[in-house]
Write a protein that binds this DNA or RNA. Structure first.
Lengths: 194, 194, 194, 194
DNA sequence: GATGAATGAGCCTTCATTCAT
DNA sequence: AATGAATGAAGGCTCATTCAT
C-alpha cells in the first residue's frame, strides 16, 4: 500500500480493483471484502471512499462509460477515411471490451441504478451513438458512403458487427485478433454481403 | 393453480415463471420465493421439480437455448432467398429477444455452470452458428452472395447487427419495430455501407 | 404390504420400523418419509396411526421400555441363584441393547416428552430398578449376598457394569460376547475386585 | 460482553456456551442463535470462530473429551491406594458429568462426525480406558487387587458402576451425593456383593 | 383407508455495513 | 484515516404436516 497516494489516487485504485472483482464475480458475487483485498486495503476503508456497494458500482459504471466514450472519440478522430475510422473503432472496441466485457454485461442488467446514474448512463450512451452517427454523416458528406444510407441502421450494423466479433473471440474462440480480421470486418461492412 | 396440470406441465410452468423472475431480478436477485409466487405455487414445491436454484437456472438455460436454436432453424428454413431468410431471422430474433433478452444476458455471465450444462450451451451455440453458416454457404452457392465473402465475418455482421438493433430498441428506444426497419437492416447488410 | 394386516399389526409394524430409523438417524435426523418407507407404506399413512412425530416417538419409548421391563423380569425369574439371575440379566441386556442401544440413548436426551409419557417412563424405570432391587433383597434373604450390602449401590454396580460392557462391545470392540465373558462379569461383581 | 477478551478467550466462551446449549437442546435442537445469545454475542460472530455448526460441535467434543481425559488422569494420580483412587474417580466423574452428562450422550449418537474427529475421539477414549487399566494393573502389582482379576471386566465394573450412579442421581433422584455414597460404591466394588 | 404432492415455518449461513480502536 | 471484528437481515433449503384424490 502506497502511503503517499493521494485521496484521488486511492479512490481510482479502488475503482479499478472493483471493476476486476465485479467482472469476475458479478454484482452479487462480488464481496466487498474481495474488492478491499484486491485494492490492498481494509474492508472498512472502502467505505471511506464509497458510501455503499451500490454507489461504488454506479461510480464504476460512470467511470467506465466515460472512458469508453472518450476512447471511442479519440479512435474515430485519429482516422482520416471512414475505413481507417472503422478500423480504429474495431481495435479500440476489442481492447476495451477485452478488459471490460464482463463488467459491461453486468452493468446492462442492473435494474436498480439510481435515477441519476441511469440518466448519466443513457446520456453517455447517446454520446457514443452520436460519435458513430457523426462519423457516418461526415462520411456521407464526403461521398465515402452512399447518400441514401439509413444512418441509424448503419450505426447498428457497425456497432453490432464489431461487438459480436469481440464476443465470439472472447467467449468461444480465444484466438488473438489479427490485422486481417479487422480488415475483413470493415470490408464486409463497407462492401456489403453481395 | 390448475389442479389438472400434469407433472410435466407444472414443471414447464415453473420454468417459464423462473425465466421471468431471473430476467427481472438477475440470478442472485431472483429469490426462490418470487419464482414460486410467480408460478402460483408454494416455495417448497419448486424443490419438488428442481433440486436447487443452480439446477433450475441450468434447466432454464437449456430450455431457452434449445428453443432459440430450433426457432432460428425454422425461421431460416421458411425463407427462399437469402433476403427472405435474413428477414425471418430478424423477426425471430426480435420476437425471441423481446421475451428473453435479459435472461440471455444473465446466462452469459454465469461462470459456475456445471460442466454438463456449459458443454450443452456451447454445443447449441455452435449449432446456432452452424444454422447461419449454412445459410450463407447456400446463398454463396446460389450466387446470391459474392463468392469471396468471408463467411465467418459475414455471420458476425448479420448476428451482431440484428442483435444490436434489438438491444437498442429494447433498452433505449422502445418504439415497436416495423416491417420497414427489418427491410432497412437487410438492405444495409446486403448492399454494404458504400 | 400385507393387505390383511389388522390395524394393530400395522401399527406395530410402523413402531418397529420407527425404532430402526430413529436408532440410525437420531430424532431429528429421522424423517417421517424414511420411517414410512422402512414400514413399506406411504408417508401420509403414518399419520393415520400416530398423530405426530413426537407422539410416535413417545409411543415407541413406551413400547420399548415396557418390553425391556417385561423381558428383564422374565430373565430374573428364570434363574434360581443370584448368579444365574445376574447371568440371565447380562444376556438379556446384551440382546436387548444390541437392538435398542442407540434408541435408548436418543430417548435419554429427549427433553420435550409429554408429561404423561415422562411419568410413564419414570414409572417403568422405577419398576426396572424394583426388579433388580427385589432380586438383591431375595438374595440377601437367602444368604447369597452379605446382609450389610447397600442395596442401592449394589444395584447400580450390577446395572452399570452390564451396561458398560454392552456399550464397550457395541461401540468400540465388536467381538461377539461369549459365555465366559458373562461369567467373568458375574464373577467380578460377586467376588469383588479384591 | 467483555471487550478485552482475547480471540482465544472469546473462542472458549463460545465453546462453553455451545456445550450448555447442545446439552439442553440436543444437536439439531440447538439453534446457532441460541448459542450466540448464550455466549452474549451476535449470530454471525459465532461463524468468525467456527466455520459451521458441525465443526463447532466437533471442536466441543474434542475439548470436552480432552478435559475429561486429563481430569481423570489427575484424579487417579492424586490417590495413593486403589481405594483413594477409585474415590477420586467417583468424585471427578460426578463433577464432570454433572456439567457434561447430556452433552456426552449427544456426542455418542452423532454419526456424522468427520473422520479426523472420530479418530481423535476413539483415541482419547482409548486413553481413558488406559488410565483405568493402568490403575488396576498397578493395584494388582501392589497386591491391592487379587492377581487373577480380569482387568477388562474390572475396568467395566468400575466405570459402569460410577457412571450408573451418576446417571441415577442426575436423571431420577437429584439428591446431592455425599461422601458416604462414594464410600459405599468403592466398598461394594472392592468387597464384591457377597 | 391409503397416498404423496403441496405447503410454509424455521434454521444455517452469508455478507454489507458499522464502529471501537 | 484505516482497520477488521461484530452484527443481523435476508435467502436457500428441509421436512413435518395436510388434504385432495
Amino acid at each position: 500500500m502506497v502511503i503517499t497516494a493521494s485521496r484521488e489516487e486511492r479512490q481510482t485504485d479502488i475503482l479499478k480493483a472493483a471493476i476486476r472483482v465485479f467482472s469476475e464475480h458479478g454484482f452479487d458475487g462480488a464481496k466487498m471484502e474481495y474488492i478491499a483485498k484486491e485494492a490492498g486495503i481494509g474492508k472498512g476503508t472502502v467505505y471511506e471512499y464509497f458510501e455503499s456497494k451500490d454507489r461504488l458500482f454506479e461510480e464504476i459504471l460512470k467511470f467506465s462509460v466515460d472512458r469508453y466514450s472518450q476512447g471511442l472519440k479519440e479512435a474515430i478522430d485519429q482516422g482520416k477515411t471512414i475505413e481507417e475510422r472503422i478500423l480504429n473503432c474495431s481495435r479500440f472496441n476489442v481492447e476495451f471490451l477485452n478488459n471490460h466485457m464482463e463488467f459491461m454485461h453486468i452493468a446492462m442488467q442492473i435494474k436498480m441504478l439510481s435515477k441519476e446514474i441511469r440518466a448519466h448512463h443513457m446520456a453517455v450512451h447517446a454520446v457514443i451513438l452520436e460519435h458513430y452517427s457523426e462519423m457516418i454523416k461526415e462520411a456521407k458528406a464526403n461521398g465515402e458512403l452512399r447518400p441514401d444510407l439509413n444512418e441509424e441502421i448503419a450505426m447498428f450494423c457497425i456497432i453490432g458487427a464489431l461487438e459480436q466479433f469481440c464476443k465470439q473471440r472472447f467467449y468461444m474462440d480465444p484466438r488473438p485478433l489479427e490485422e486481417k480480421d479487422y480488415q475483413a470486418i470493415v470490408d464486409v461492412l463497407l462492401r456489403g454481403l453481395k
